[in-house]
Amino acid sequence: MEELSSQVLNPDRLKALETWLHETGVKLTQVNGQRKYGGPPDDWRGAPPGPGCEVFINQIPRDVFEDQLIPLFLSVGPLWEFRLMMNFSGQNRGFAYAKYDSPALAAAAMRALNGYSLKPGARLSVRRSTEKRQICLGALPASTGREQLLQVLRELSEGVESVTLKTGPLEEGVSALVVYASHHAASMAKKVVVEAFKKRFGLVIAVKWQPTPRSQPDDPVRPPKAPTPLKPPRHPHLSQPPGFSRAVGGPCSVAPAAPGSRQVSQAPPVDAVKLLQGMCEVYGRGKPLYDLQYLHTGPDGFLYFGYRVYVPGLARPLTGMVQTLPGPRPEAIKDEACRAAAKQVLSVLYRA
């Protein structure tokens, strides 16, 4: 009975919403499972907000609507947009997004409204929105071209900024990284492109969020402290990380023995990936994240990769290019490229 009663709409709350809309003239638009105010509102002046201006609101009672939520979040500052997630029954789904014109106002909303009590036993959770803007399309035809895909996506969805095709030994078939102008645009595209490709081209493709590495967690109550510069430990016998033989992050640091000389046993080379991870963990920063992209195969047979390595505690990723010899499996090639990238990153950090 409790489950059934939770699905029944509160007529008094619906009447209050209708009265508020009539008295204020606020316009709400129902779009794909959400009800939107603004984006921007009619009286907005200025450019659209940039990154860091949106907050995620959770634990909203199911019979609470915009007549209570929008004035509450407007009390902090002007709203560019407010989106309340809705289900087919007409109830809200318990969460919403509010976007302000500056990161400072978003931070103020988190401080003022996180834990705010709308009714006895119901306290809002307000924290920074992740604002993911990148989705990954998989299982695309081998003949897919970048310009062709870009044109199709712009017909099917709004806010497409760029498309990058991913092919090569580390990819199964052809996939694409699509960057949108906003989290809202990417979220809407994620809902419609699968069905649109099926109806228009008879293709079943895969769509998922592209992870966005973050260097520090969100905390609406206590903003994170600025990270202290990350300095690698100095080893008395290690002026730079050791090389390794297959990946061109640098040649192996062990010189070949001269003819006729006695072979001196050497310590096994240090795995640069483990060394970088251990260094980050020593400083309590977590684990580094690797983003590899196959570029091309050279005439000498080497595979060339671009990389971004997100080192916790650093404001920006470290980027570069490495090359490896082909391996027996895609996983082995990826591991080799990661080791080469880690070695280059360690070299940069040791020179810092």
Rank of each mutant, 00 (worst) to 15 (best):
E3K: 12
Q7T: 13
Q7F: 09
L9P: 03
N10W: 10
R13F: 07
L14M: 06
L14A: 07
E18L: 09
H22S: 15
V26M: 15
L28A: 05
N32K: 07
Q34Y: 07
R35W: 12
R35L: 06
Y37K: 04
Y37G: 08
P40S: 10
P41N: 11
R45F: 10
A47R: 10
A47C: 01
V55N: 02
F56D: 11
I57W: 02
I57V: 15
N58C: 10
Q59W: 06
I60S: 02
P61R: 02
P61N: 02
D63N: 14
Q68M: 09
I70G: 04
F73C: 04
E81Y: 03
S89E: 13
Q91H: 15
R93Y: 09
G94P: 00
A96Y: 01
A96C: 03
Y97D: 09
Y97A: 04
A98E: 07
Y100K: 10
L105C: 09
L105W: 04
A106Q: 06
A106K: 06
A106S: 13
A109H: 09
R111K: 15
Y116R: 05
S117V: 13
S117N: 06
S117A: 14
P120D: 15
P120S: 12
A122T: 05
L124M: 09
V126P: 08
S129F: 01
E131N: 06
K132G: 12
L140I: 00
P141D: 10
A142E: 06
A142K: 11
T144K: 08
T144P: 03
L153Q: 04
R154C: 10
E158T: 11
V160Q: 08
V160P: 08
V160Y: 06
L165W: 10
T167G: 07
G168P: 12
G168D: 05
E171M: 13
L177C: 12
Y180W: 00
A181G: 01
A186M: 06
A186E: 02
A186K: 07
A186F: 08
K191Y: 01
A196M: 06
K198L: 13
F201R: 01
L203V: 01
Q210W: 11
P211I: 06
S215W: 05
P217H: 10
V221M: 12
A226Y: 02
T228E: 15
L230Y: 05
K231L: 09
P232L: 06
H235G: 03
H235K: 13
Q240P: 00
P241N: 05
R246K: 12
G250A: 15
V254M: 03
P259A: 08
R262G: 00
Q263N: 03
V264T: 15
Q266D: 04
Q266H: 13
P268Y: 02
A272M: 02
L276A: 03
M279Y: 09
C280R: 06
E281M: 12
V282R: 10
K287F: 00
P288W: 02
P288A: 01
Y290S: 02
Y290G: 01
D291G: 08
D300S: 13
D300Q: 04
G301V: 11
G301Q: 12
L303Y: 13
Y304F: 14
Y304T: 10
Y304K: 14
F305E: 01
Y307L: 03
Y307F: 15
R308Y: 01
L318A: 07
T319R: 14
G320Y: 11
M321K: 14
L325F: 08
P328N: 15
I333D: 11
A337E: 09
R339A: 13
A340G: 15
Q344I: 11
Q344M: 12
L346N: 00
L349N: 10
A352P: 00
